[in-house]
Design a protein around this nucleic acid. Structure first.
Length: 532
RNA sequence: CGGGGAGUAGCGCAGUCUGGUAUGCGCGCCUGCCUUGGGAGCAGGAGGUCGGCGGUUCGAAUCCGCUCUCCCCGACCA
C-alpha cells in the first residue's frame, strides 16, 4: 500500500505514517534522478537507495545478495562496535561449523518444526551420497549444544559465554535485500549458566546491549519487549526483541534475545555437577542481530536523495570537494586542502594517504584509527563539483566540505550537513577535531531525535477493534492496546488486518483495561503493527 | 508455493502485436578539447546476439514450449 511521503504532498491515506521531510522544498531539478521518491513507491525507493549507494547487488542465485564494499563497511562498523560491547561483558568469539548433521535438529521437537522447512540440506559430497544429510546452519544452537555437552562438566565450567560471527542460510520464499535473504551474515551469542536466574539475567543483559547499541550507535529508537508465543523462537522458553519503526510505519524486528531454559540442555545433554553435587542441566540463552540492521538504517534515516548514515556508523565522515577553474586555482585549492588536513590529521597521515587511493582518485585519510572512519578528498577530475555532491550525498556521508578559490582567499571551508542541508563557513584553523566531533555528535543526536519523533507521532493507543481495523486499513504505525495474547486471536487479527503483536513491552505494568479484540478484562498491554 | 508484471549495451528504454542484417534512443563509459561554487558543452570512439535451453521456419529479439532471475500482491516464515 502506497504511503505518502512528500511534505505537503497529497495524503491518500489519512492515517498513514509519513517520512521525514527534506530540509528545503524539493525542486524537480535538484532531486536525485536515479531514486524513486518515498511517496511514489516506498519499496522501489528502498531498492534505489541501495543501488545508488552501491551497497549490494543481486547474485545469480535466487534470494542471495552480494554485499559490495560500501555495504560491507557498514556491517564492519556494526561488528566492530558490537564485538567490543560483547567482549566487555566477557564473551569470547569462536567458530562452529557451517554443516550440521540433520539428526541434530530432530533432538529438539519445536526447533525442528520451526526450522525444517527452511533448511538447505547437503546430500552429496565428493561425488558420493552422504550417509547422513547435512543442514547448512540456519542457527547454531544444536551444534553448540552438542559441543558444550562435551565441554561442560562442573558448575565451575559455567557460565560459558560464546559468540560467533557467521553466515546462516534460511530458505526464504520472498526475499528483499538486507531485510530477508536466503543467506545472511549475523552474530549469534550463546551462553550456558548454572541457574535459571543467571540465564534470565543474561537474556535481559544482551537485550539491553541491543537496545543501547541500536539507539546510541544506529540512532534508531527501539521498543523493547517480549514476543508472544506465536512469534517465539523455535525451542525458546521466552523470546525478547527490539523493534524499530521504519519510515513507512511498518515494524522491523532488529534483534532478538532468547531464554532457552533447559530445552537445548536436555536435548543435547549439557549437564554439570552442581555445588550441591547433583547432576543437572545447564540453562542456556542465545541472541543475535544480522545484516538486516543495515536495512533498518536505510529505512529509518534515509531520504529521497539517498542514504543518510548516522555519524557513529559512517565509514567515511566527510567528503572534501575541491573546486577550481584552472590550474592556478587547482594548485591553490589543493595546497590549502592539504595544509588544512595536515593541521587536522597530521602530516604523516596526509603523506600516508597518498598511497591509499585504491582504484580511484578518491584520497582516504583516517580520522579515527580505532574505528577506521575516514575523511575522503574527491580529487577526481572527470567529475564536476555538482556531480560529486550528488555522489557523496547518495552514499550518506554526514558531512561535505567544499573548498573553492573564494574560500581559500578567505582562509575558510564550507561545511555542509547531509542531514539538514545546512551550510557553515568555517575558518581553516577552526576545523578541529573538537569542532568536527561536536558537529557529528549533534547530527547523531538529531537523527535519533528525528526518528523518535516520527515513531512517537505514529504510535497511538487504541481501545476498540473497530478503531483498530480502521487504523490498519488506512495507514501504518504502532498501536498500543490491551490484549490477552492468544495464538488463535492473533491469527485471526492477522488475517483480518495484517497486523501482528510486535511485542509485549517490558518494564512497565499497565493499568487494567479491556482486551481490544475480545473485550475481556486485560492487564496486558501489547504493541501491534504491520511488520516486515 | 499461487496470482500479476518484467528481463534487449553498465543503467533506463524503443523495437516484439504484424518474423526479414540490432550501423537503435537517452544517460553512463573511453580519447581529445573545453569546463569546474549543484548532475556542463563539442568532436571522435568502444560496447549488446536480445536472460537461458529447446522447437517452428528459408530466416526468430519477434511465434510456441520449458526454465532461470528480479519486482509487486498473497500464503509461508525470522
Amino acid at each position: 500500500m502506497p504511503v505518502p511521503f512528500a511534505p505537503g504532498g497529497p495524503r491518500r491515506h489519512p492515517g498513514a505514517a509519513r517520512g521525514h521531510p527534506p530540509a528545503g522544498p524539493p525542486r524537480e531539478d535538484e532531486m536525485a534522478r536515479n531514486i524513486t521518491t518515498r511517496e511514489k513507491d516506498y519499496s522501489q525507493w528502498y531498492l534505489d537507495v541501495i543501488a545508488a549507494a552501491e551497497m549490494a547487488d543481486y547474485s545469480p542465485v535466487r534470494g542471495c545478495m552480494v554485499i559490495r564494499p560500501t555495504g560491507y563497511a557498514l556491517w564492519e562498523a556494526i561488528q566492530r562496535e558490537l564485538d567490543g560491547r560483547f567482549k566487555e561483558l566477557g564473551h569470547q568469539n569462536c567458530y562452529f561449523p557451517l554443516f550440521i548433521p540433520e539428526s541434530f535438529f530432530k533432538k529438539e521437537a519445536e526447533h525442528v518444526e520451526g526450522f525444517a522447512p527452511e533448511c538447505a540440506v547437503v546430500t552429496h559430497g565428493g561425488g558420493e551420497r552422504l550417509e547422513e544429510p547435512l543442514c547448512i546452519r540456519p542457527t547454531s544452537e544444536t551444534m553448540i549444544g552438542h559441543m558444550w555437552s562435551q565441554w561442560v562438566h562442573s558448575w565451575r565450567d559455567l557460565p560459558v559465554l560464546n559468540n560467533q560471527w557467521a553466515n546462516v542460510v534460511r530458505w526464504e520464499r520472498r526475499t528483499r535485500l538486507f531485510l530477508r535473504t536466503s543467506e545472511f551474515l549475523w552474530q549469534e551469542g550463546h551462553t550456558a549458566h548454572e541457574t535459571e536466574a543467571e540465564a534470565m539475567e543474561e537474556t535481559m543483559r544482551m537485550l539491553e546491549v541491543y537496545r543501547s547499541f541500536a539507539e546510541d550507535f544506529l540512532a534508531i529508537p527501539v521498543l523493547v519487549g517480549e514476543k508472544t508465543e506465536s512469534e517465539r523462537f523455535a525451542g525458546a522458553v521466552k523470546t525478547f526483541c527490539i523493534e524499530g519503526m521504519m519510515q513507512d510505519g511498518k515494524a522491523l524486528q532488529m534483534g532478538t534475545s532468547h531464554f532457552l531454559g533447559q530445552n537445548f540442555a536436555r536435548a543435547f545433554d549439557i549437564r554439570f555437577e552442581g555445588r550441591d553435587q547433583k547432576l543437572q542441566h545447564a540453562w542456556t540463552t542465545s541472541w543475535g542481530v544480522s545484516t538486516r540492521l543495515i536495512g533498518a538504517v536505510i529505512m529509518v534515516h534515509s531520504d529521497d536523495e539517498g542514504l543518510i548514515l548516522p555519524p557513529r556508523m559512517a565509514p567515511a565522515l566527510a567528503a572534501v570537494i575541491p573546486i577550481f577553474r584552472n590550474d592556478d586555482e587547482k594548485a591553490k585549492v589543493l595546497a590549502f586542502v592539504e595544509k588544512t588536513l595536515a593541521g587536522l590529521l597530521g602530516e604523516d597521515e596526509v603523506a600516508a594517504s597518498l598511497t591509499r587511493f585504491g582504484n580511484s582518485q578518491v584520497q582516504q585519510l583516517f580520522y579515527a584509527q580505532a574505528s577506521g572512519q575516514s575523511i575522503v578528498v574527491d580529487r577526481r577530475e572527470t567529475m564536476r563539483p555538482g556531480e560529486k555532491h550528488y555522489f557523496w550525498e547518495q552514499r550518506g556521508l554526514p558531512l561535505r566540505i567544499e573548498v573553492g578559490p573564494r574560500d581559500v582567499d578567505g582562509g575558510n571551508l564550507v561545511v555542509k550537513s547531509r542531514l539538514d542541508g545546512s551550510k557553515e563557513v568555517v575558518p581553516a584553523a577552526a576545523l578541529t577535531r573538537g569542532y568536527l566531533d561536536a558537529k557529528l555528535a549533534g547530527i547523531q543526536k538529531a537523527m535519533y531525535d528525528r526518528a523518535k519523533s516520527f515513531r512517537d507521532a505514529n504510535t497511538h493507543a487504541c481501545g476498540s477493534y473497530r478503531e483498530f481495523s480502521k487504523f490498519f486499513e488506512a495507514g501504518r504505525g504502532f498501536l498500543r492496546c490491551h490484549f490477552n495474547p492468544s495464538s488463535q486471536a492473533e491469527a485471526q487479527i492477522k488475517t483480518e488486518t495484517k497486523a501482528t503483536v510486535r511485542l509485549i513491552p517490558v518494564g512497565h505494568t499497565p493499568a487494567p483495561g479491556t482486551d481490544v479484540f475480545t473485550g475481556d478484562p486485560s492487564t496486558t498491554e501489547v504493541v501491534f503493527a504491520i511488520s516486515y
